[in-house]
């Protein structure tokens, strides 16, 4: 049995953004501008655990993105994934979540013999969290979202704990499944020194849209339009500092203001 982990390369969490003619660009003066989507690190860790503890033969990292995304995949290899695959094709740029999900599904089908596809909860750039369920629909597999623990994998059946807005749910399903994970599931490991050395030499196979036979992806298939992107306007007004002779007096003034604002 193989497991696949889908990882997206995203801007770092400290990246500084600029928008020109609707095109978003970013840099990170302090570090690397692009990273593995932080939520996906938990999925990568879980994929490696499938190999170490649950008898998976391969833990394969899969990414759809521009050629620079092989950096994110190298991080996954350095952490302990056995293989990595990049799907990169100019024809796929401008896909929406549906197109990305179909592309991931087609690549997973090409890899073959996959029983579990792991995903992060959401990507910190698009912030939608729709790709895992949509990939599950494209594959015809059962989606198990917001998974906080994998309880057992046994004779083709998997039991997991899900953490939803309502509470904690224990649920079981037959393989193959798509799983999206939340932070509670594990503590992602750091890449090892050996892993980094190995990953730096790895040649990552790149597949085109034609290689995986994906249809219905790319800009023409997109069902959403996101033409206008612009910076979040700064919060209005200056901060009003509450200054007084005693904390009691400061507290009294602040509480008065909050009653006036009608937030109490």
């Amino acid at each position: 049995m193989k497991v696949v982990v889908c990882v997206k390369q995203t801007p770092s969490t400290t990246a500084v953004f600029s928008v020109k003619d609707g095109m978003v660009s970013w840099e990170d003066p302090g570090g690397k501008p692009n990273v593995v989507n932080p939520w996906d690190e938990y999925a990568v860790e879980e994929a490696i655990k499938f190999k170490e503890d649950r008898g998976a033969s391969d833990a394969i990292a899969l990414c759809v993105g521009d050629p620079s995304s092989d950096e994110a995949l190298k991080t996954c290899l350095a952490m302990g994934c056995t293989d990595a695959v990049l799907v990169s094709d100019p024809a796929l740029a401008g896909s929406d979540t549906l197109g990305t999900a179909r592309t991931l599904a087609a690549a997973i089908n090409k890899i073959g013999d996959v029983q579990v596809a792991l995903f992060g909860k959401q990507a910190i750039d698009g912030d939608s969290g729709h790709v895992p369920v949509q990939a599950a629909r494209a594959l015809g597999w059962t989606p198990l979202t917001y998974v906080s623990a994998i309880k057992s994998v046994d004779g083709g059946t998997i039991t997991v704990e899900r953490l939803t807005d309502d509470g904690k749910e224990t649920v079981t399903a037959k393989l193959p499944v798509v799983i999206s994970v939340v932070k509670e599931i594990n503590e992602p490991r750091y890449p090892s020194f050996m892993g980094i050395r190995k990953a730096s030499k790895a040649v990552i196979p790149t597949w085109s849209a034609g290689d995986i036979g994906v249809s219905n992806a790319g800009p023409a298939a997109a069902r959403t339009d996101w033409t206008k992107v612009y910076p979040m306007p700064p919060r209005e007004g200056e901060v009003e500092m509450i200054v007084a002779d005693s904390v009691e007096e400061q507290a009294r003034i602040l509480v008065n203001k909050l009653f006036e604002e009608k937030v109490i």
């Binding site: 979540t97 969290g129 729709h130 629909r137 219905n216 069902r223 959403t224």
Partner: peptide, 19 residues
């Protein structure tokens, strides 16, 4: 909500509709 997000994604995928 967690359920609402999943339901929207599912419905969009099956209807080939934008979400």
């Amino acid at each position: 909500s967690t359920r609402g997000r999943d339901l929207a994604a599912w419905t969009g995928a099956d209807l080939d509709a934008g979400v």
